[in-house]
């Protein structure tokens, strides 16, 4: 090991200890040193992850692996307790329900819940080199039911309802040009803005779809509409990018607030 590595490690450990003791001494509550330890640990893990911005380092790697491991274990435990114990066992047998201290849900057709158990076991057969093919049955079931369930719902919500949302009147409350110009204003619910929004929706949807129409060469008026389509797509992606920046900065604000408020206590 290099000397600088050891020194860095020693300094970080010392800072951790100082922070822990200081937090423990100034924290109120029933177990100040435990709380102090947890806050300090959280703060140091935050800093360890952030240190990646400088460059890749062992502290970042440690924090990342810790996160991956903990979340995998957490997801597994939760999956067991909420799916198997929470949803399956109460419908299987009163005896096992008693054992897990969950209330048995009686029903006439509870025996059908043995089918998901069998499918679940078959799914695990993926781990076996010879029985791997058995996992295709439950997989086929999952893919089939999900496709069937989603097909109708997507068709309804993302197709029919979206078509009906696109059918908007382009002339709202139209009583001639005189009326239009005498009542001209730029409020969000004004006639001008509403008409413009509806026009954007109509043209946006039509040209966007034309861009994704592959059966015809994009030339002539069709090509021009497709050009408008790609512009609209780009504006959408720009908006989406902007929103993403906002989202990421919110997360950074959350972390920095944690460091300043909960750990360093320099803001209230």
């Amino acid at each position: 090991m290099k000397k600088t590595t050891i020194i860095t490690f020693a300094v970080i450990s010392a800072l951790f200890l100082v922070s822990w003791i200081a937090k423990g001494m100034f924290t109120e509550g029933s177990s100040p040193f435990l709380d102090g330890f947890l806050v300090t640990l959280a703060a140091f893990l935050t800093l360890a992850i952030m240190s990646f911005l400088y460059k890749d380092n062992p502290y970042y790697k440690f924090a990342e692996h810790l996160f991956v491991g903990v979340s995998a274990a957490y997801a597994m435990c939760l999956g067991f307790w909420s799916t198997i114990v929470g949803n399956l066992i109460p419908r299987l047998s009163s005896g096992i329900s008693e054992f897990f201290k969950v209330s048995y849900i009686e029903g006439d057709y509870n025996f059908i819940y043995f089918i998901p158990i069998i499918f679940g076991i078959l799914l695990l057969m993926r781990l076996s080199p010879r029985g791997g093919w058995l996992s295709r049955w439950p997989l086929a079931f999952i893919v089939g039911t999900t496709a069937g369930l989603n097909f109708v719902r997507y068709l309804r919500s993302d197709f029919i309802n979206q078509v009906s949302s696109t059918i908007v009147p382009l002339m709202i409350d139209w009583q001639g040009f005189g009326h239009f110009f005498s009542n001209l204003n730029f409020s969000a619910t004004g006639q001008l803005v509403m008409m413009f929004s509806n026009l954007v929706i109509f043209i946006g949807v039509t040209c966007g779809i034309i861009y994704f129409y592959f059966s015809k060469e994009h030339t002539g008026w069709f090509g021009r509409a497709s050009k408008i389509g790609i512009w609209i797509l780009m504006i959408t992606f720009g908006a989406s990018f902007g929103y993403t920046v906002m989202g990421r900065i919110s997360l950074l604000v959350g972390r920095i607030t944690f460091l300043f408020r909960d750990w360093l206590e320099i803001i209230s």
Binding site: T236, A239, Y243, G247, S250
Partner: peptide, 23 residues
Amino acid sequence: AAVVAPQLYPYFPNQILGLLGGV
């Protein structure tokens, strides 16, 4: 969360009546 907000705008106003996008 802000990241998904733009994808939900098409549902307004017929399928969702209001949307708070991000912070």
